[in-house]
Design a protein around this nucleic acid. Structure first.
Length: 103
DNA sequence: GAGATGACCATTG
DNA sequence: GCAATGGCCATCT
């Protein structure tokens, strides 16, 4: 069992997130078979190239917020992509109750 | 090998 | 509901 295997599993899970839904880091880690590795998930997402086909913008933290500093380019892009899928933010936060993916 | 860092999480006050 | 605290785990200096 290498970390590459887990990475593949993780990316596969991420790729199966439906349009209009979001997932948290911990949830993705759990679905990929690593319950306490949410930080590693964040690390992998950071490594992704911009042109990646993966829905990285559908990944938010457990507080229903985008994990980039507000005002940064990354923050803005993620917010924009989510808006295109019908996911809007209320007072800087997303309603996990409505938008969180439930496999 | 010790200490710091990070797209985090759960608990506590 | 929000901020502070401790915990987790891989990578970097």
């Amino acid at each position: 069992m290498t970390d590459e295997t887990q990475k593949t599993q993780f990316f596969q899970t991420l790729n199966s997130v439906p349009n209009g839904k979001v997932v948290t880091y911990g949830q993705l880690a759990d679905l990929s078979g690593m319950s306490k590795r949410a930080r590693l998930v964040g690390r992998w997402l950071k490594e992704l190239p911009e042109g990646s086909k993966l829905p990285w913008h559908r990944v938010i933290n457990a507080q229903g917020k985008i994990s980039f500093p507000e005002g940064s380019e990354q923050f803005f892009e993620q917010k924009e992509r989510l808006a295109l899928e019908g996911i809007v933010m209320h007072n800087g936060k997303i309603k996990l109750k409505e938008y969180q993916w439930q496999p």
